[in-house]
């Protein structure tokens, strides 16, 4: 390669490598702020601020949803399978909100460690399948067999 072009190639490579390194360091330094939510384990450990709005993310604990019969109030527990946090929310929940599914709740922690949510979002997972396949998987799981697609 022509020495001039070789030199330019080195400069171009340096531009890419150094700018990537710079952005990488910034992202690493800001990693806590880039996370959209705190997992329940961090909230229970006191790593989340208590005096301002935070987001809590995890799975809705099976059998934990309690709905008020007269109001829109709902309480449920969110877990990351290490710790759990109770959430109280008054409002309309997204359609995909369900037990055992992902959720992100925004709000403030009260003195008892309950998150008083102002917004609850459903976190959809990466699984896409037809209803028949889902039913087949559920049937197999109920029979205690390994869930294997036909």
């Amino acid at each position: 390669m022509h020495p001039l072009r070789k030199q330019r190639l080195i400069v171009v490579s340096l531009v890419v490598v150094l700018s990537s390194a710079a952005v990488g360091l910034v992202a690493f330094a800001l990693r806590d702020n880039i996370n959209l939510f705190y997992p329940p384990a961090d909230v229970v450990a006191g790593k989340a601020p208590v005096d301002r709005n935070i987001r809590l993310g995890g799975m809705v604990v099976e059998g934990s949803i309690e709905r008020s019969s007269t109001e829109l109030d709902t309480t449920f527990w969110v877990t990351d399978y290490e710790a759990s946090v109770a959430v109280r929310y008054s409002g309309i929940l997204p359609d995909l909100f369900a037990e055992g599914e992902g959720v992100v709740a925004e709000g403030m922690l009260d003195d008892n460690g309950v998150l008083i949510a102002t917004q609850v979002l459903a976190k959809h997972d990466e699984n896409y399948m037809p209803p028949e396949v889902a039913a087949a998987l559920e049937g197999k799981a109920a029979l205690g067999e390994a869930a294997v697609l036909p």
Partner: peptide, 26 residues
Amino acid sequence: SLVGTVNIPIIYKSVDWWYALHQPAS
């Protein structure tokens, strides 16, 4: 354009590196 290339792996891996609302790749 060259400086911006750093953003591409960040977009691709963002859902694995950080807690995000967007689901991981299917």
